Amino acid sequence: MTQQTNKTANSKSIQALFGGTFDPIHYGHLLPVEALAKQVGLQQVVLLPNHVPPHRPQPEATVQKRLAMIKLAIKNNPLFSIDTRELKRKTPSYTVETLLSFRQQIGRQKPLAFIIGQDSLLSISTWFDWQKILDFCHLLVCARPGYSTYFSTPSMQQWLKNHQVHEPEILSDKPFGAIYLTDTPLLNISATEIRERKRDRKSCKDILPPAVLRYIDKHHLYQNCL
């Protein structure tokens, strides 16, 4: 990551992180985050590919191939960069530990945000040490088709109410602790759908960046039988 050359100008800019298996990376990852960046005023979003995700099956593509696809997807897009610290872990990638690592790197005063989907917000109470997450960052929540905007328990709904902010400007005024529900495009795209389409020899042109699709075809990814 580049060093700050103008501390006064950049001290309030929000550093945003977006994690996932990216197996493969697709428009459902990229387009909502690009819209979110415009809403919130993000200058850069750091992509954090997981090595051992704790809440889902292990990725089909290797670490090297997933990383190669991410690089192809964000080439010539200055909004995105990549951080590989989670890929170097042999243990599950717990969000709170990654956030602690970033805090140790950037200090306690710089605004830090973690981007998640509505589905992840609603299941956040199942995450490891989830109560500590807002001690390190803000949560920026992208809408997901078919998911409720309410928690199933009053206590979690109250937790959201206690931390939710409605003006994005607030996010740069404090380093952590807020939840902002963004008005991003509802794209019903999933990596599972892409893998199923590839196995069924169906087109993925509408849901994958062209360079990523070419890479998948070249390396014959996601073509094994279920």
Rank of each mutant, 00 (worst) to 15 (best):
L48V: 05
L181V: 02
K198P: 00
I194W: 06
L67P: 05
T62N: 06
L30R: 07
Q58L: 12
P209V: 01
Q131V: 04
A61W: 01
W130P: 05
T62D: 11
Q131P: 03
Q223E: 15
L171C: 04
D83P: 04
M69E: 01
P154T: 09
F18W: 01
G20W: 01
L112T: 00
T192I: 04
D183F: 00
M1P: 10
G177Q: 02
C142K: 04
R195C: 02
C142I: 00
R89M: 09
T184L: 06
L100I: 10
P32R: 07
S101F: 03
W130M: 04
A37M: 05
K65Q: 15
Q164R: 15
A61T: 00
C142G: 03
P185G: 05
P92T: 02
Q44R: 15
S125I: 00
F22C: 07
R197D: 00
I207Y: 08
Q157A: 13
E196I: 01
C225P: 11
Q157I: 07
K202S: 05
T84Q: 15
K202Y: 05
P145A: 07
A178N: 09
W159D: 02
R103P: 08
H138L: 09
L87V: 01
A35T: 12
L134H: 07
H55W: 11
P78A: 12
I14H: 02
I179P: 03
E196V: 02
V141M: 11
A9C: 06
S81I: 14
S203D: 15
L17F: 12
I70K: 02
V40H: 11
A178T: 04
Q109E: 14
D129A: 13
N162T: 03
A37V: 04
E34R: 11
T62V: 02
G117S: 06
M1T: 06
L213A: 13
A35L: 05
Q158C: 10
M1V: 11
I25Q: 05
L72F: 06
R199L: 10
G177T: 07
N10K: 12
G107V: 06
D129Y: 10
T21N: 06
A35H: 14
L121A: 03
L72R: 11
H51N: 15
P210A: 13
P210G: 05
P210I: 08
Q104A: 08
L160D: 05
F80E: 03
N6T: 06
Y150C: 10
